[in-house]
Design a binder for these strands. Structure first.
Lengths: 276, 276
DNA sequence: TCAAAAGTGTTATCCCTACACCCATGC
DNA sequence: GCATGGGTGTAGGGATAACACTTTTGA
């Protein structure tokens, strides 16, 4: 796929046969949980949900942020393989939890050509990729603010920049829980990616309740406090300790290991146990 | 999209530029519930889940059955619009519940060219389309037999034909509920459609529990008995009357109308009421 | 000693299951 | 009268929420 440095350059090619063709891409919402050390030595480090964004360097949407993604190699790969390739490229990791989200096909998604894009959500434990990221790539902490039932504000922040977008939610049919998302305020995120980000986060919020996918964001050994914080940060609500412990009791296995040096009673380390 | 009557004719074109292009299709699993009158005048008519299939008349998969579907008009429509167009073509109805299922992209899906296909599930009340169907189109009753956790038999039957397929289920990751489906016995269903059929039915089975989508398969006025039967046939298990009535109590509204002449106490007719 | 989090036990409440029971109809 | 489905009440059990409480550590 040719990249254009300018609109002029692009317009030269426009209306040629090139633009009758259909292209497909995959876009990947890579989600992880970041930890911020607290000033108080007693407090546990604060957790935040974070996603990986890439700064565009070419037309269109030059200098805006977008999800990592890439064009499907029509001759040689499936969409899943394409998504895996993009992830490998971005993180140097191959075994990342990956799940197809939704296929978007708006006619005006990309001004260069007709593009249909299949989005994926990927979950990873940040400890696995401490190595330096590619240039123009950055983790952004995510805060979701539900203004009301029909409007969501998303705030994305890294060390240098804070991005704020607003998305309108419209119920598609009265018989279902499916919403049509539409960005009504967005200056920094390219393509239809605000919608992809929200779809992915909503999916994660739901799915954490009836599957074990959280453990894809956890290291091998973790304390129940840490695990609870991840649940809390994704669902965006405080949970009661005893209730939480009962719920996840049969999904984890206590190990001999103990976490000490945290300014309070040491905690047992657990690991994931597949159950059922 | 050119149709080929024979493999020879097709092979003439093969390896030409045509086959470097990517095409997209939508496949639609149209689900409804059929009623079979019982011989005993007292008994209520027996309900079955049924799906619409089309008999192929051209190469490839000539004479096999497949889901209604069609190629995406790259210049002019989104995938949703494409799916709606196909449905309108098949049923003459425009306002049918339609929901995107999954995008399949196996490299060898169609021997003619590279095809990526987005599947949809559609729900309809059969009473709405009593008119004669197109030629080569037929409703098939569906029976799902879960042999064990890793194997499912699907039996499809219309008045003339019974089709039996077996699908192997493999858990994709231990942390989730997602399965990879693979047809291990199938002689009559084209493409990867056995997998699409199963995915759709599983989605429906799940979603009926936490949304109101059943009502898309119901007429405007219905008895609670009929509604319960639809739940039972989709979930493939018997429900207890009082429990069921409590569960759906705030989703329905009692009307003045009454259903009589059924060989037993007449029942109140209800209609859907959006709640929450 | 103290703040913070780890970890456990107990009660009150809700919800669902299961069963029992009565009602009204067509033949 | 009777088989069939319509329709309702209630007792019992299991899960969950809310709260109270004890334990253990680093500074």
């Amino acid at each position: 796929m040719k990249e254009y440095q300018s609109e002029q350059e692009f317009l030269k090619d426009y209306n040629s046969d090139e633009f009758e063709k259909l292209s497909m891409t995959t876009d990947i919402l890579l989600v992880s949980v970041s930890s911020k050390k607290q000033s108080n030595y007693r407090k546990t480090s604060k957790k935040m949900m974070s996603i990986l964004l890439v700064k565009r360097t070419n037309y269109p949407y030059k200098d805006m942020w977008c999800l990592p993604g890439g064009f499907l190699d029509v001759r040689n790969e499936s969409l899943d393989e394409c998504a895996k390739r993009v992830l490998k490229n971005e993180t140097n990791l191959s075994n990342i939890y990956l799940e197809q989200l939704y296929t978007f096909s708006d006619l005006n998604r990309d001004p260069r050509m007709r593009v249909v894009s299949t989005s994926y959500i990927a979950l990873v434990d940040k400890n696995r990729l401490k190595e330096n990221l590619n240039e123009n790539v950055s983790w952004f902490d995510v805060i979701l603010l539900e203004e009301d039932k029909e409007k969501v504000d998303i705030v994305l922040a890294n060390e240098e920049e804070t991005i704020s977008i607003t998305i309108k939610k419209t119920l598609k049919e009265k018989t279902t829980d499916r919403y049509k998302y539409q960005a009504i305020k967005n200056e920094k995120i390219a393509f239809d990616h605000p919608v992809v980000i929200l779809s992915g986060i909503e999916r994660l919020k739901n799915k954490i309740n009836y599957t074990d996918i959280v453990f894809n964001m956890m290291p091998e050994y973790f304390t129940l406090g840490e695990l609870q914080q991840v649940y809390e940060v994704i669902q965006n609500k405080k949970l009661l300790d005893p209730a939480f412990r009962r719920i996840i009791a049969n999904k984890v296995e206590k190990t001999e290991k103990v976490q000490t040096g945290e300014g309070h009673r040491p905690s047992a380390l657990f690991k994931y146990k597949h159950h059922d």
